[in-house]
Structure formats: structure tokens, C-alpha cells
Design a protein around this nucleic acid. Structure first.
Length: 682
RNA sequence: GCCGAGGUAGCUCAGUCCGGCAGAGCAACCGCCUUGUAAGCGGUCGGUCAGGGGUUCGAAUCCCCUCCUCGGCUCCA
């Protein structure tokens, strides 16, 4: 055992007494550059007060980085658990990891938490934080951990799960074998210790943590909700409290403002206010009516995708909303997917089985949850040759899925929705190209609709519960997806085991105007249906071959994408998408005639325009045009009528361009629409 | 499906704790007013208080069931 150790930070290197901590090392290396919460030792997260090994590369982990915030939030979760333990004696605690933008902790308590409870817990957390408790790491043997947490069944279960090697990588805990004998892992416990040395609270936890509660600058509890232990429905339901924590009060405030902004932009709220959509209770959960304003926006989306699919060699089809159960038998949906399908329409009941309906006996029908079987029938409508591949069947297909009642969420998760659905049948040698084209198509779509580049591309590989056999097929398909994505140059990640049972897939996400991420596009390879429907084409060798089937939806769901548009643009659509593009406001009734002629000139060029002939004041009419988020308001009165001009006010500004010749405005707005211009020049 | 919070006029919400005539603002409608960029004035209409059952002299209010919405869990486009 050497008396000194050497530590490094980049090019810098110093010798320290053995047992020096990470913070001492960083100080000696002069490597602290901000609000430090923990260290990175050879890349591993490390408590500042924990001794570093000889030869280590040491760096600081800072509060204003994602990784640093995660440490901060994890420590805040402990603080919250301590407060809950204080206020709810007997509470059992489960896990409390950091998550994106915050943290949670799950508890078993006698009754669910109320909003008042959250206030009380938060207040208690502030008191505890003021005590300047230190987070002290301790390694304990397995049996000591078992003894210490004898009253905490969930912690005991975590220990046994670690024993079984099931959750070594769980966020909250890790078996740490480095100091123990081989095969006898030690566990880490973090103790919150008051300045007088009294232990306030302890938790089994992997860490690391901030050195002291005074290093938690700003936090807030947000909501409570039920959550199954270990995320499994057969496990007890615990009470989860969500909170958030940040490196400064300012950062917390701006996060809370973002949440408030998101609530303001909620597509259900804007859908009502702007008369885009309607969801009356009589209609049923997860179903939507597109009112005229929303329908126009949707038609722009549909027009775009129809035109682009044609350009890119897709062939349109139309298929019915229902089909005989036979079809769903062949497809396997009744076998694998019945839970998510609406019940069958029984055409065989007493009233209908009179003689005139006798021929309908046995003909039970089902609403379609997917379009694939129909597209396969389109493909198999005649014999196909290798020469005509790939065949890209395309449809805006509305599907109905009986989603469990608790998961329906506005138009983001609906029971009836429309996919811009395509199934591409191709030869082995065409798969990579086809998948590549799909991803590029998705990029063009995001660009056109103002979402920029994808924020995340994830390739999901074969899950445990997948169709048996066809190992080469799976491997080849996964490789094809990877190759295709690599060719696009987009960064991607892989989600091992997250693919569908019938094939691997690519999911593409995009970020909206306020930074939220949405899963939109999916590109999947299906090995199941081509087998079930015995899909084939005749190859050059004259023999039958099984084509690859690539399933892709770029918008994903039209309803979901529409909602993302509403929320991202805050209802203020770019002119080409806006339900109403121009509002003409006469300053007094005597100019209604000129206002109408202005509108006619615009309408002749297919601009969506209305004249406000109500008898309100000018101020009220302008206000109404602004709250309706119409891109252009044209105010016209005597001077405009005389000179054939308009006064232009753009949405969101209080400036006007006066005396613009009508023809000039028409030319401008028509060009803006034709170019689908995203950014409105002031 | 599970846990929690909700549902009052077209919209936003008071009233519910502690049972006693169902309210406000906006919108709509009618009238008055009529030239310059975010709400002119007055009036009228509008309700099975989500639905059903129960307790009570009396229920928006208390209890039970159902439906629907929201926040989560799980699942997913």
C-alpha cells in the first residue's frame, strides 16, 4: 500500500496522500470550474467526499449539466423521502430515481397523498435542507443491509433482485464488488447526517449524491400519482410523488414557466378556443370531430403527404373500415391483438336472422385496428413480378383501437385515428434503399412542417417475445435498418429488445417549438404477415419468393401530428396552414363594399379570407382577428378605398404597413403560401 | 385495467367544506352608437348542476353506482 497516489485531470497531474477524496483531488488539480455536485473518476460518477484510487482521471460534475442535475435531483428525492418518513411514520419507501426534468420517489403509505400533503412535505423538505445534512456514503455487507432495512420490504426485494443479478444496473442501487470478496457484493447506503453527527435518514442507494443538502438550490414538488411497484400490474400500487430540482432558483422558475406555457398550448384548449376540433362526450372517448378550421389544417397536411407520396412512387389505395373476422383470423390480429380491437359486429342476432338476412349468417365483422391486411390484399390482387418491385401501397387509413380507458389522452392517444400508412413490398436487395428513403422522407416532412431535424432516431431490435425461428431474417433486417440510418448520417441509438414481436423497427422523434419531444414516425419490418398471407412475387428464376414488407407511417397519426402542430405553433399556424389566412376589417360599415372587393381579389387567388362585417368597433374587430390568430389583418377605410390599397397588420405585431397597393399584397401573400414559408417576416 | 383529482350556461369559473330561490364574466341574440389598429353602451336569451339511484321536510351540495375528462402507472401511433 503506497502512502501517496497520483491523480490526473487532462494534462495536469498531482501526487496526494492515499485516501484523498475527489474534492481534494480536484482542488489540488485546480480543476473546479463552477457549481460542483459530484465528480467523475475515470468516467464513473463519484461522491466528492469519496477517496479516489491511485492513477485516477478526475473531473468535476456540475449542477448546470444534465448529468449534474441528475445527481442533484437524486439527492432531492432522498430529501423528499426523509420528509415523507417524518410526516408519515411507517411509510415504506421503494425507489426514487432522477428522471428527465425531475425525480420521483415511490412510497407505500396508508392513504394516497393529497395536494395539501405535498405542500406539507415540501415545507418539511425546506426545513430539512436548512439543517445542512451531509450525504454520507457507506459500504455495508449484504447481511448488514438486510438487517438495517428489515422494516423496508421493497429495499429487501431490491437486495434480493441484485442477488439474482436482475437489476445490477438499476438507477437506485448497485452491487459494488470492488472492495468485497469476489461473489460477495457490498451494498452502498447513503446516510443523511446532521452537523452534530446524528443520522437523520438512510437509504440503500447507488449514489452519488451532493455533499450536503445546502447544495440543493431549488426544488418543487409537482404531483402525486399511483404507480405499480416495479412497473408491473401484478404488483402492489404505490404512491409516487413527482418533483423537480434545479441548479438555481432562476432555472427552476424558467422550468415552471415552460410547464405553464405547455398547459397554455394544450391542443384540447386551443382546439376549443380556435374551433379546430370538438370532442363531445356523446361521441365517445378518444374520438374527434375536426371542425372546419381544424379540417383545413388537416387537409393541408393530407395534401402535402398525398402529393409527396405520388412523387416518390407510392401507389394510392382506398380500403374499408371494417372487414370480416376471417381476415383478422388470417392476419393473426384476433389471436395477438384482440384486446385492442373493438368487439365484433354481430350480424347474426335474432332480429337480423330473418329469412332476408339468412345469407349473412356467420358474417361477423370487425373495425380495423391496422391497415396492413388490406394493403396485403391489394398487393396479392394479382401475381407480382420481381420487375415491378418495390411496390409501395399507400393510404390515409383510419383505424380504431380499443385503448384501455386510462391511456386515452386527447388526440395524442386516441381510439380512432388516421395513419399516413404505407406498406412497401420489396426484394432483399432493395430493403436498405427503401428504409433509407423512408427516413429521408420523414426528414423532409419535419422540415416542411417546421420541426427541423429529428431529435432522436431509435432502432429497436428483436424482443424476447418474438416469433420463433427466422434468426437470419431478424439479423438481416436489423442490419438493414442500421445501414439505412447510417447512410442518412443522422445520429441514432439502439433499444435492444424493444422491437415488435413481428419485426424490428425505427422510431423517429422530433422536438417542438418549446423543446418537448414527440414520437412521430415509425418504420417497421414485418416478418409475420407475409407468411400468414403467403405473400410472394415471381423472381427472375421463375420461382416464388417472399418479399420484405416495410411498414411505415411518417406523420404517425394524423391526429397526433396535428396536435403537435397546434401546440408547437401555439395555434398561430404559418400562413400556408392557417385556417383563415386573411381577415379584412372595414373601419366602418360604409366601406364593407371595398372590403368585399379586397376579399374577392384574394379569394380569386385561393387565399382563405373573410370580411368582418360585424357592427363592433375597429378595436374590437382587430382584437378578434388577433385572438383568432389570423396571420394577416387588413384594415380598410376611406384612404385605402380611394387608392386601392390596404393597411396590413401581421399576427403578433402591433405595427402596420400602410398604403400597400392591394396587388402587391396579393402577390406577397400568394408567394408566402406557395413557398409554405415557415417564418413570418415582420 | 389500476391509483388519484375532477364534471355547474357554448367557453372560463364562483356556489359544494357547513343541505334552504342556480350565479358572474365572455360568447350568442336584440337595440343604440358609427373613420383608424387588442374589448363602446344597454337589454334579452341561455341550466335534467354528467347520468341513475339513495338519505332528507328539502340535495349542485351528503352516500352509492355508471359515464366522461385530467394527472400518473402499464401499453402505444
Amino acid at each position: 500500500m503506497s502512502a501517496t497516489i497520483t491523480v490526473r485531470h487532462g494534462e495536469t497531474q498531482v501526487d496526494l496522500d492515499a485516501g484523498a477524496t475527489a474534492i481534494q483531488a480536484l482542488k489540488a488539480l485546480d480543476a473546479i470550474r463552477g457549481q460542483i455536485v459530484a465528480a467523475l473518476v475515470d468516467g464513473a460518477e463519484w461522491d466528492l467526499d469519496r477517496p479516489v484510487p491511485d492513477g485516477a482521471e478526475v473531473a468535476g460534475l456540475y449542477a448546470d449539466t444534465d448529468q449534474g442535475r441528475a445527481v442533484l435531483r437524486h439527492s432531492t428525492a432522498h430529501l423528499m423521502a426523509q420528509a415523507v418518513t417524518d410526516l408519515f411514520p411507517g411509510a415504506k419507501w421503494a425507489i426514487g430515481p432522477p428522471i428527465e426534468d425531475g425525480f420521483y420517489y415511490d412510497f407505500e403509505v396508508a392513504r394516497p397523498f393529497t395536494p395539501e400533503d405535498l405542500d406539507a412535505i415540501e415545507a418539511r423538505m425546506h426545513e430539512l435542507a436548512k439543517q445542512r445534512q451531509a450525504y454520507v456514503r457507506e459500504e455495508v455487507a449484504r447481511e448488514d443491509a438486510l438487517a438495517e432495512f428489515a422494516e423496508q420490504p421493497y429495499k429487501l426485494e431490491i437486495i434480493s433482485l441484485v442477488d439474482e443479478g436482475k437489476i445490477v444496473s438499476a438507477v437506485d442501487v448497485a452491487a459494488d464488488g470492488e472492495d468485497g470478496a469476489a461473489g460477495a457484493p457490498t451494498f452502498t447506503v447513503y446516510r443523511n447526517v446532521r452537523p452534530d453527527g446524528e443520522v437523520a435518514w438512510s437509504d440503500l442507494c447507488r449514489g452519488p449524491h451532493v455533499p450536503s443538502t445546502e447544495r440543493i438550490p431549488a426544488f418543487k414538488l409537482l404531483r402525486s400519482a399511483g404507480a405499480y411497484w416495479r412497473g408491473r400490474e401484478d404488483q402492489p400500487m404505490l404512491q409516487r410523488i413527482y418533483g423537480t430540482a434545479w441548479e438555481s432558483k432562476k432555472a427552476l422558475t424558467s422550468h415552471l414557466e415552460m410547464l405553464a406555457e405547455a398547459r397554455k398550448r394544450d391542443h384540447r384548449k386551443l382546439g376549443r378556443e380556435l374551433e379546430l376540433t370538438h370532442h363531445p362526450d356523446e361521441l365517445g372517448p378518444g374520438l374527434s370531430i375536426f371542425l372546419p378550421n381544424g379540417a383545413i389544417v388537416r387537409q393541408q397536411m393530407e395534401d402535402w403527404i398525398r402529393a409527396e407520396t405520388l412523387k416518390r412512387g407510392y401507389q394510392p389505395v382506398y380500403t374499408p373500415h371494417i372487414a370480416k373476422e376471417d381476415l383478422w383470423q388470417i392476419s393473426g390480429h384476433l389471436e395477438n391483438y384482440a384486446e385492442l380491437m373493438y368487439p365484433g359486429m354481430d350480424l347474426d342476432d335474432g332480429e337480423r336472422s330473418s329469412s332476408e338476412h339468412a345469407n349473412r349468417r356467420g358474417a361477423a365483422y370487425r373495425l380495423k385496428p391496422m391497415n396492413c391486411p388490406f394493403h396485403i390484399l391489394a398487393f396479392t390482387s394479382r401475381t407480382r413480378s420481381y420487375r415491378e418491385m418495390p411496390i409501395r401501397i399507400s393510404e390515409l387509413g383510419t383505424v380504431y383501437r380499443y385503448e384501455r380507458s386510462g391511456v386515452v389522452n386527447g388526440m395524442l392517444r386516441a381510439r380512432g385515428f388516421t395513419q399516413d400508412d404505407s406498406h412497401i413490398f420489396c426484394r432483399d436487395d432493395q430493403v436498405v434503399d427503401e428504409v433509407y428513403d423512408c427516413v429521408q422522407f420523414a426528414r423532409d416532412l419535419y422540415e416542411a412542417f417546421g420541426l427541423g431535424e429529428p431529435s432522436r432516431v431509435a432502432i429497436s431490435t428483436r424482443p424476447e417475445k418474438s416469433l420463433p425461428g427466422n434468426d437470419e431474417g431478424w439479423d438481416a433486417a436489423e442490419q438493414a435498418l442500421i445501414q439505412a440510418v447510417e447512410r442518412t448520417g443522422l445520429p441514432y441509438e439502439t433499444d435492444p429488445g424493444e422491437g415488435a414481436f413481428y419485426g424490428p423497427k425505427i422510431d423517429i422523434h422530433a422536438r417542438d417549438a418549446i423543446g418537448r419531444e414527440w414520437q412521430l414516425t415509425t418504420v417497421q419490418i414485418d416478418f409475420n404477415l407475409p407468411e400468414r398471407f403467403d405473400v410472394s412475387y415471381i423472381g427472375q428464376d421463375g420461382a416464388k419468393h417472399r418479399p420484405y414488407m416495410v411498414h411505415r407511417a411518417l406523420f404517425g397519426s394524423i391526429e397526433r401530428f396535428f396536435s403537435v402542430m397546434v401546440e408547437s405553433f401555439n395555434g398561430a399556424f404559418p400562413t400556408w396552414l392557417a385556417p383563415q389566412q386573411v381577415r379584412v376589417v372595414p373601419v366602418a360599415a360604409e366601406f364593407d363594399g371595398y372590403a368585399t372587393s379586397v376579399a374577392d381579389a384574394l379569394r380569386a387567388r385561393e387565399v382563405r379570407v373573410e370580411v368582418d362585417v360585424s357592427d363592433g368597433t375597429l378595436g374590437a374587430k382587430v382584437r378578434d382577428a388577433q385572438t383568432s390568430k389570423v396571420p394577416f389583418t387588413l384594415v380598410v377605410g376611406g384612404s385605402e378605398a380611394e387608392s386601392g390599397t390596404v393597411s396590413i397588420r401581421r399576427y403578433g405585431t402591433d405595427k402596420q404597413r400602410k398604403d400597400v397597393p392591394l396587388d402587391d399584397f396579393v402577390t406577397e401573400v400568394v408567394a408566402e403560401i406557395a413557398e409554405r414559408r415557415a417564418n413570418a417576416p415582420g
